[in-house]
């Protein structure tokens, strides 16, 4: 049974602005789904709609097999973690954790036991008497997670929970979150604007743009087999290089009205196969990232980025030819952006 199911969900604001457009999504029990997209794509609205904090215009939402459209947030068996943690500043960690249980009038002794158990699980037992402002970012994060866990939800909703943390802490928390997911076995929907986070965390990834689902798939498929130009451009860093068929020249396939794409990390300094394709251009800049160099070349006015092994022979302003395999070339329809199959 699906833990979460969205069927033809629309949200229209003021009769004109469509924020969510025909969203269909199924999350299986225990699955971690990340939702990614640029800011304003509707991903937070999607999450808030699932939580019941916002009403949808049409369509159905099912949680644990139950239609929840008309249910209040607290009846939907969800828990939510916000970007700013949303801890109550005037309550201690203990009080924050206990807030929901108290609101539901759970017996004091039960509250005590459950809060302590969760605190131990998250390593917060020494901090129960502290106020949020006396906590580090990670501790606040764990408190917010703890509060959500205490709801014992069917679906765990996370809205950019890591983006307010600094970078080293973020990857640490990401690992903790994955471990937590594994041990709890809970269904999670994880919203982020960071595509690398989405790929590394999600068992499946939903790419959202302008209120529409662009692609739902495993991280490998999203990266290796994007369905359209948007997904191809949005996923991966540095972003995919796009080339018109004119630039690619005669060596390209005879496809009409397409744009080609190749990922920076697929560009090579040497030819490997006989049918490899190439572009050449003047080296605009060389950036050393340690074990790998990032090179930008200008070809017919178009800028291409490549990630190559360090090579002392490379000089700025010199001509350079970059090679790539035919399998690494993507083609997209120039007007619709849809992926076009390349004959290999």
């Amino acid at each position: 049974m699906a833990s979460l199911e969205l069927s033809h969900v629309y949200k229209v604001i003021g009769g004109r602005q469509t924020v969510l457009h025909d969203i269909n999504l199924i999350a299986h029990h225990g699955e971690l789904i990340s939702v990614v997209g640029p800011s304003g794509c509707g991903k937070s609205t999607l999450l808030r709609s699932i939580a019941g904090l916002e009403e949808i215009t049409s369509g159905d939402i099912f949680i644990g097999g139950r239609r929840v459209n008309d249910l209040q947030p607290q009846q939907r068996r969800i828990a939510m973690v916000f970007q700013n943690h949303a801890l109550y500043p005037h309550m201690t960690v203990y009080q924050n954790l206990a807030f929901g249980l108290r609101a539901r009038r759970v017996a004091r002794s039960v509250v005590e036991t459950r809060v302590r158990r969760t605190a131990v699980r998250l390593g917060l037992e020494a901090l129960l008497g502290r106020y949020p402002r006396e906590l580090s970012g990670g501790q606040r994060q764990r408190t917010a997670l703890g509060r959500a866990m205490l709801r014992d939800p069917e679906v765990f909703l996370l809205d950019e929970p890591l983006s307010s943390l600094d970078v080293p802490l973020r990857s640490e928390m990401r690992r903790e979150l994955m471990a937590l997911h594994k041990s709890l076995g809970m269904t999670m929907v994880y919203v982020t604007h960071d595509q690398s986070e989405a790929l590394s965390l999600g068992e499946r990834v939903v790419v959202l743009s302008a209120g529409k689902v662009q692609q739902v798939d495993t991280p490998q498929e999203i990266y290796g087999n994007p369905l359209n130009r948007f997904v191809a451009a949005f996923v991966g860093w540095p972003p995919m290089n796009f080339l018109s068929s004119e630039i690619l020249g005669t060596s390209a396939m005879d496809l009409q009205n397409v744009e080609y794409g190749v990922r920076p990390e697929r560009l090579m300094l040497q030819q490997h196969a006989a049918d490899d394709l190439s572009v050449s251009g003047r080296i605009e800049c060389i950036e050393s990232l340690g074990g790998v160099w990032q090179i930008e070349i200008i070809h017919n006015g178009a800028r291409l980025i490549a990630r190559v092994p360090p090579d002392a022979a490379l000089r700025q302003d010199e001509e350079l030819r970059l090679w790539f395999g035919r399998a690494d070339l993507y083609a997209f329809h120039k007007t619709t952006g849809a992926r076009v199959k390349v004959q290999r």
Partner: peptide, 25 residues
């Protein structure tokens, strides 16, 4: 606003939101 979102998710009513969130803060 998230503090009130959480309260709604946790099932705290308007009166409880006023007394245990707004006024103390």
């Amino acid at each position: 606003e998230e503090l009130y979102d959480i309260a709604r998710i946790e099932g705290a009513g308007v009166r409880q939101q006023l007394l245990s969130i707004t006024v103390p803060i």
